[in-house]
Amino acid sequence: MSEFNHPYSKKDSPYKVPEGYFAQKQNDLFAIADEKIKRTSSVRQLSWISAAVAAVLALAIFLFPGGKPTELTSEYVENYLLSEYNYGFTEETLLYELDGEDLAVEDGWEFSDQAVEEFLDNNFDQTLHYEYY
């Protein structure tokens, strides 16, 4: 085996460090560990929240497969009328029924009579509903 004995002490080093370096470094390393813990717990918390939100959404989709559109489309109004007034209203009788009243659709969706009338005038073919009913 090779022996090596340098005349100078192994403890004497030509390398230097800035004053107070080790104390400062230890504090920095503790801070890094704390930061990692904080971040990990935030990520875990976020994962739980994400999982909970996903579960609620999945349940909502399961219970209410149709969902609610974000705007008043022809399809939505037709479906609504089919489900709520499926006893054979024509567009004309529907307009008559709605006359003078505000229509509360669902969950605070409110439309004035005028808005509904305009919408129906502009978007519905008279013959379309006769085919359905």
Partner: peptide, 13 residues
């Protein structure tokens, strides 16, 4: 700056 090149041990390093 943090290496004492004049130190006797410097040569070994």
């Amino acid at each position: 700056a943090y290496f004492d090149g004049e130190a006797a041990e410097a040569k070994l390093h």
